[in-house]
């Protein structure tokens, strides 16, 4: 059954190409990746129906024993309709994203942004703390002490 092997290999190639596209940031590329993988899956489903055969029609010309399995084809048709609808929706979403922010890149999630902000805030605090310490060292060298807590002045009422 060489036909089936070709289908499986083609499905695998589509999977691989789709996965590569999924790893990109722009929504349109991810979408193309999903479409490729979807087609790859459809080929795999088609491969489950075995070798090609006669049309599955209850008609005198066609023998039941030589008919192709119609069920995978029905699965694929359903899957194609679903993928089409989702592709249309995602394309609209990518367009809306581009309209709103000028790019259709998938953004970092809120937790990532929060961690980055926290790190930035901590860096800022560190820099200022070092400067305050240096200033205080200078002042104490000149004999004038400053009792303010640098953390409280920097973070204010938020802490």
């Amino acid at each position: 059954m060489t036909e089936t092997l070709i289908l499986v290999i083609a499905g695998g190639v589509l999977f691989a190409a789709g996965t590569a596209l999924l790893l990109a940031r722009p929504l349109t590329r991810i979408l193309l990746g999903a479409v490729l993988i979807g087609n790859g899956v459809n080929l795999l489903v088609l491969a489950t129906s075995g070798a090609a055969g006669d049309p599955p029609l209850l008609y005198p010309r066609f023998e039941a024993g030589r008919m192709a399995d119609p069920l995978p084809a029905a699965f694929i048709l359903t899957a194609i309709v679903i993928t089409l609808a989702l592709t249309a929706f995602l394309v609209t979403m990518a367009y809306r994203s581009w309209e709103l922010s000028g790019s259709d890149d998938v953004q970092d999630d809120a937790e990532d942004i929060r961690v980055v902000r926290r790190a930035a805030l901590a860096d800022e605090v560190d820099v200022r703390a070092v400067r305050t310490r240096q200033a205080r060292a200078l002042q104490s060298a000149e004999g004038a002490g400053d009792e303010d807590d640098p953390w409280a002045t920097i973070l204010g009422s938020d802490t």
């Binding site: 899956v41 679903i82 979403m93 994203s97 998938v106 953004q107 999630d109």
Partner: peptide, 24 residues
């Protein structure tokens, strides 16, 4: 919502594709 929707839709789409492969 578009930002959140992108993550959600891609994740769901991927799981659907995997489901279809499992059914196959």
């Amino acid at each position: 919502r578009i930002r959140a929707g992108a993550t959600y839709a891609i994740m769901a789409l991927l799981s659907s594709v995997l489901f279809m492969a499992a059914v196959a």
